[in-house]
Write a protein that binds this DNA or RNA. Sequence first.
DNA 1: TTGACAGGCAAGTGGGCACTTGCCTATCAT
DNA 2: ATGATAGGCAAGTGCCCACTTGCCTGTCAA
Lengths: 87, 87
Amino acid sequence: MFKALADPTRRTILDELTDRDGQTLFELCARLLMKHGIDSTRQAISQHLDVLEGAGLVRVKRDGRYKFHYLDTSPLKEIADRWPSRD
Amino acid sequence: MFKALADPTRRTILDELTDRDGQTLFELCARLLMKHGIDSTRQAISQHLDVLEGAGLVRVKRDGRYKFHYLDTSPLKEIADRWPSRD
DNA sequence: TTGACAGGCAAGTGGGCACTTGCCTATCAT
DNA sequence: ATGATAGGCAAGTGCCCACTTGCCTGTCAA
């Protein structure tokens, strides 16, 4: 999961899914280019999504030829639990 | 900061500082070897500490020939703020 | 059914990063 | 002063990872 968060493009993908959940691959590609100037190929984004899915940060739902991507922030809880803020 | 968290050894260093704050470089090297089986050179650990310090996760205090390392978890707040858990 | 659209698979490449190696500086005790 | 201790600097190496490239599969509309 930590490796998944290490890449700026992947973090921007999480931002984009925070803004609009349930996007398809092409939707994400378009919005990453428009809003964030990320000019990567579709395959690159797809591989990023695979990593994010492997980290449990993105959940997937298939419907016909579409594949929707949903954000799951629950793995992030490990961070706050592991290194608690000492007030 | 995210890149700093990406490395397992660096995360273990944070664990070690959580357990005992204010360790020196040699202290950390010894405890990483004893408790976690991390057999890295002093220089490797030193470079890791530089990265953690650059990320703001570790603060440093010099005293004579000793350099003490203190954990600072406040940068981690960015994560919870950036991708809030939707309950 | 055939073309367009959404996505997948896999090999290759280049750059960054973790780690080592070798040597140097600074502080302290004896 | 001199050896030991704590740490720093910098060049070199090997490997992982992000990205590309090329081609293939599956789904839907006309």
